[in-house]
């Protein structure tokens, strides 16, 4: 018995150590981006003395990012495109998700399959034709063109996720509200929206981050720096022969901040939303 106990303790410790190691491995690069972005160039490239905390704390990297490079424009574009595409996707998903959850029609399965299947088309099959179409109707190198693509890319998944959230709200809840004297609008605001809140948050964040992180569409469909988003600008920075590491890391921090904040607030809703969709059916 005591031998088994010893084994259990050893197993437990090993497990703990393995997980801690993985945790450190996940966090280390993020820490490194943050710390490096506050170092001076001279400190970053000093091979003989790697520092784990800035010797000389500086904001120069951020300053030159905005003053010498066009990061202000990229940031504005990214915020604009991500917010607006996420808002549109959210409206789509609420409307479509409600319809697919509540209205029973014969071809419902087909409609859902239609959205799921569109997610499986390899992106390579779409880029060339869409590029040619865009070139013909003048949507290359325009924010509107990118906005449409972000809505398209993110809406099927969000719509189906939203549907599974609607399906969790029993119709009887709405009926009960009506019996208690709520009109349609009141029942929407007081009953449906609060219950649906996790779904709304999850879908919005998914759509936002999907657009915020996109590189493929940005690289293909924008030409001039005035239309670039942060990932495209970052990619250009990385590709430079003479990279200023501090600037690059500062750019990384700026790109990271919204995602991490959003993630911290909503991660439990997102997981809930995902598993709600996965467990259903």
């Amino acid at each position: 018995m005591s031998k088994r106990r010893l084994i259990n303790i050893l197993l437990g410790t090993g497990r703990f150590l393995l997980l801690s190691l993985f945790l450190i491995g996940v966090l280390a690069p993020i820490y490194w981006i943050l710390v490096t972005s506050f170092k001076t160039d001279a400190e970053i490239v000093n091979v003989n003395n790697i520092t784990y905390w800035p010797d000389q704390f500086t904001l120069d990297n951020y300053e030159s990012l905005f003053n010498q490079l066009d990061f202000g424009i990229y940031l504005r574009n990214s915020i604009l495109l991500s917010l607006s595409s996420a808002a549109i996707v959210l409206i789509y998903s609420i409307l479509g998700g409600y319809a697919l959850a509540r209205y029973k029609f014969k071809s419902k399965k087909m409609v859902i399959g239609f959205f799921l299947l569109s997610q499986m088309i390899p992106s390579v099959l779409l880029t060339i034709p869409i590029y040619i179409i865009y070139a013909n109707i003048g949507l290359i190198n325009s924010k509107l063109g990118l906005l449409i693509l972000y809505v398209i890319i993110n809406s099927p998944f969000c719509l189906i996720t939203m549907r599974s959230f609607f399906e969790r709200i029993p119709v009887s809840l709405e009926d009960a509200a009506r019996v208690d004297g709520c009109n349609k609008i009141q029942s929407l605001w007081r009953i449906i929206i609060p219950v649906l809140f996790p779904g709304i948050v999850a879908v919005f964040v998914f759509a936002f981050i999907g657009a915020w992180n996109d590189l493929l569409m940005g690289v293909i469909f924008t030409l001039s720096a005035s239309n670039w988003t942060i990932p495209v600008g970052m990619k250009a920075l990385i590709g430079k022969y003479n990279v200023h590491w501090g600037e690059l890391m500062a750019g990384g921090v700026i790109a990271l901040v919204p995602t991490i904040i959003m993630f911290a607030f909503v991660q439990r809703y997102i997981v809930e939303g995902l598993t709600a969709g996965a467990v259903k059916e």
Binding site: L23, I238, V271
Partner: peptide, 18 residues
């Protein structure tokens, strides 16, 4: 460990390069 999923590849490439 969920967090990196939401980080853009371009940032990953950035810190790997650095």
């Amino acid at each position: 460990t969920y967090m990196p999923h939401f980080i853009s590849w371009v940032i990953v490439a950035g810190f790997v390069k650095q």
